[in-house]
Design a protein around this nucleic acid. Structure first.
Length: 263
DNA sequence: CATGTCGCCTGCGAGC
DNA sequence: TGCTCGCAGGCGACAT
């Protein structure tokens, strides 16, 4: 479940591996989710960016290859493999191959004019490290909707890049119940800081490997060893020792501390 | 436009 | 041992 820290970790490793390389051949799984990969033949990759959980491979002909890793997506560059879960691949002009492995096929690839986005990528909120992402912004965004706090965070609208793991971590750290529909200015400020911090620390520790996430070199992240809330229901809260609880919010398992995160 | 619901996908581990 | 079943969950499409 790559979220912003996992995608950013991959981006940093991907950029030096593919920048300046021209795609000489490409192929994909027949699903329309992956076939756009094939149209990259002939393009030269100039840079690798990121927006929320999307990787943006900019090409010299002003197009962008947009890759979303979905739940189980992995990227690697090297000798081509015969792995049956490779959903798309690009042979580069240095005889190396960029492979997109995605067991569950929740990932998606698009190719289009640079900056012209579709779907959620067109309406996504600010990057968490952008100065415009302030407590004030978060306060207005959360209170401008009647949906529950965590639902909103996962919507990518108040801020880009937060998924289930970091949403639980941030709410816990800020001491805010994930099911509330309104927050105070003070809570918004704390939550803004918590979001920035958990994402920043996630990047610093190479992302969270619970199961499928791997770095470009096949390595594991380290952040799973630092989680204080996600998945820790029925265990004592690291802050107050209360047994943490689980609730299902929008069909997603959510962990919270009933003491630290009282409604 | 905001919101709600459903379908997409497959491996894995718990329970019997 | 071998089977079924629940679970992981972000996003697009579509309905209201």
């Amino acid at each position: 479940m790559p979220e912003l820290p996992e995608v950013e970790t991959i981006r940093r490793q991907l950029e030096p591996a593919v920048s300046g390389r021209t795609v000489v051949e490409a192929g994909s799984h027949p699903s329309a989710k992956f076939t756009p990969a094939r149209a990259a033949v002939g393009a030269t990759i100039e840079r690798v960016g990121r927006r929320g959980k999307f990787l943006l491979l900019g090409t010299t002909d002003d197009r962008e290859l947009v890759i979303h890793l979905g739940m189980t997506g992995q990227l690697r560059v090297g000798e081509p493999t015969d792995d049956p879960y490779i959903r798309a691949w690009w042979t580069l002009d240095n005889e190396q191959t960029l492979e997109f492995r995605d067991v569950r096929r929740f990932g998606r690839i698009r190719l289009g004019p640079a900056g012209q986005y579709q779907g959620i990528l067109a309406k996504i909120g600010p990057e968490p490290f952008d100065p415009v992402f302030t407590g004030q912004h978060l306060y207005a965004a959360i209170n401008g909707s009647k949906r529950q706090l965590k639902t909103q965070l996962l919507s990518q609208h108040p801020v880009a890049g937060v998924g289930n793991i970091y949403a639980d971590e941030a709410c816990w750290r800020a001491g805010v119940h994930p099911g509330v529909r309104r927050i105070t200015k003070k809570q918004a400020a704390a939550l803004r800081d918590a979001i920035v911090d958990v994402l920043d620390e996630g990047i610093e520790h190479g992302g969270t490997t619970l199961r499928d996430y791997r770095t470009m070199d096949g390595g594991y992240g380290e952040n799973q060893n630092r989680l204080e809330c996600y998945g820790r229901y029925d265990q004592p809260c690291p802050r107050c020792n209360t047994i943490m609880k689980k609730l299902v919010l929008d069909a997603r398992t959510t962990t919270f501390c009933p003491t630290c995160q009282a409604r």
